[in-house]
């Protein structure tokens, strides 16, 4: 979503993005002329008249689970967004019985929060386990 019109979205998709990604943008490109939606989400940059790089992960109940906001000059890391979604999906499936430690990725051990885990996280998770080696 940006403040550009749907007409500009079409030109951008058809003339540039479709040359970078086969088939073009697979999801809806939303238009927020005037920044009213961006203002509601707290990411509209009034001085520049554009949206900041806000990214919100919204679960199937419509609840915001995570967000990240960057100023315009620095791009995001899509892999990190996907990692967070995978972690939230796992947590949701386990109905809160599991949690994911810092740097967790699919296939890595999760944490089972409870009295027995207090002071024992070091036994099941070490920061070096973040790497794939």
């Amino acid at each position: 979503m940006s403040v550009d019109s749907v007409f500009v979205h079409k030109m951008w998709n058809d003339n540039e993005i479709s040359k970078m990604v086969e088939g073009g943008v697979p999801f809806p490109m939303l238009s927020d002329g005037g920044g009213r939606v961006g203002t509601t989400y707290g990411i509209y940059n009034v001085d520049a008249g554009v949206e900041n790089r806000g990214r919100f992960i919204i679960d199937p109940d419509g609840v915001i689970q995570a967000y990240e906001v960057l100023t315009p000059p620095v791009g995001r890391n899509v892999a990190e967004t996907i990692r967070q979604i995978q972690a939230y999906q796992l947590v949701r499936e386990g109905k809160g019985s599991e949690a994911t430690p810092a740097g967790w990725k699919p296939g890595k051990p999760t944490l089972k929060p409870g009295p027995d885990l207090v002071g024992k996280v070091w036994e099941v998770w070490n920061p070096s386990m973040e790497s794939d080696d």
Binding site: M1, N13, P28, S31, V37, A48, E51, R55, F56, G62
Partner: peptide
Amino acid sequence: APAYHKGKFTSVKLSDYLGKWVVLCFYPGD
């Protein structure tokens, strides 16, 4: 919000996506 999606101009309502995971991304400009 008005949208461009796969060759068509459409309208998107966030609550239509209840039941699915959604990534809502804002960016400065096309």
